[in-house]
């Protein structure tokens, strides 16, 4: 299995800056939608122009895009600020992505966004979705992968200036591991969804491989509400949930109790909650209280 983020610098999608060329390797529609939502929302907040490269089943227009991002009713700004381009327009009769034509289109859009006074052109898309239904890199062959990599290299060069940024999404379910690794390495950054919680002391990020949360920083009485909300956001996840704690600096007893309550609720649905990378002293605390017997709780390996 290819590591989803490789050795590239991982950033929250909302922290992308003009000049960035980033990738997201996703394995669920939820992850794709969540990241795209953060990407679009960030663009609207930053006064960027947004261009979405839509595949065969993707949104057909700006309203459909905002709907797909679960941002209906959000003011999209002046007409033309959110644009959807059908990737099918850039697929040759033989089913190949016409990379040069697509790049020309993006170059034109970037120039126009500058002329229109936007901070940057913000492009997102799923290059593989350009291919006809049912086809993907699994059947793309080495030549098709090479063609996409050339597109990525040219895009990186094109967008290296300050006037544009791009997020390229690849579906891990329909790409070979080697191709995924190659696609990932063609980007300087990888992204993950924006944190569910970001305060001075606490950051909680939704994770998808495995499904769960990464909890970083300090959880004390002032943060219970944030942690409770974040846990609620993964309450509907099907299957087991992993809470990654290796960057946790402090968790008090009330915070541990919230995790135990969450585990019990998951147990009622016949699912488990794994506490991964847990600081060694927290395992001791959980055992002292007797919470190591909490139904649904799995204590993963301790963080060194």
């Amino acid at each position: 299995m290819v590591h989803p983020h490789g050795v590239r610098q991982r950033v929250h999608v909302g922290d992308l800056q003009p000049g960035d060329h980033a990738c997201l390797l996703f394995e669920s529609d939820e992850e794709r939608a969540s990241t795209l939502r953060d990407f679009v929302r960030g663009g609207l907040a930053a006064e960027d122009k947004i261009l979405y490269l839509s595949g065969g089943r993707g949104p057909a227009g700006p309203d459909a895009l905002l709907d797909a991002c679960r941002l209906p009713g959000l003011p999209a700004g002046p007409a033309g600020r959110v644009e959807v381009v059908r990737l099918a327009e850039f697929v040759s009769g033989r089913g190949h992505l016409e990379t040069l034509a697509l790049l020309r289109r993006l170059r034109t859009a970037a120039r126009r966004s500058r002329e229109e006074g936007y901070r940057a052109l913000r492009v997102a898309g799923e290059p593989c979705a350009a291919l006809p239904d049912g086809r993907g890199p699994r059947v793309l062959g080495a030549l098709g992968v090479a063609r996409l990599l050339r597109y990525e290299a040219m895009l990186a060069e094109e967008f290296a200036g300050a006037g544009a940024l791009a997020l390229c999404q690849y579906d891990t379910r329909c790409c070979e591991p080697a191709a995924l690794a190659a696609f990932a390495s063609a980007h300087a950054r990888s992204v993950e969804a924006d944190p569910l919680v970001r305060t001075e002391d606490l950051t909680v990020v939704r994770t998808y491989r495995p499904q769960g949360l990464r909890i970083e920083g300090v959880v004390d009485a002032g943060a219970y509400r944030h942690l409770r909300d974040a846990l609620r956001s993964v309450a509907a996840v099907r299957g087991d949930v992993c809470l990654e704690l290796s960057r946790l600096e402090f968790l008090d007893l009330g915070g541990v109790r919230l995790l135990m309550t969450f585990a019990r609720a998951r147990a009622a649905r016949h699912c488990t909650v794994e506490l991964a990378g847990m600081p060694a002293h927290l395992r001791q605390v959980i055992t002292l209280v007797g919470w190591d017997r909490t139904p649904g709780l799995r204590l993963g390996a301790a963080h060194a």
Binding site: D220, A221, F250, D252, L253, H281, Q284
Partner: peptide, 15 residues
């Protein structure tokens, strides 16, 4: 671990 537990004890008492 011992430092973390000492800090936790103080914080729980303070809390």
């Amino acid at each position: 671990e011992r430092l973390a537990l000492a800090v936790l004890a103080v914080c729980e008492a303070a809390g």
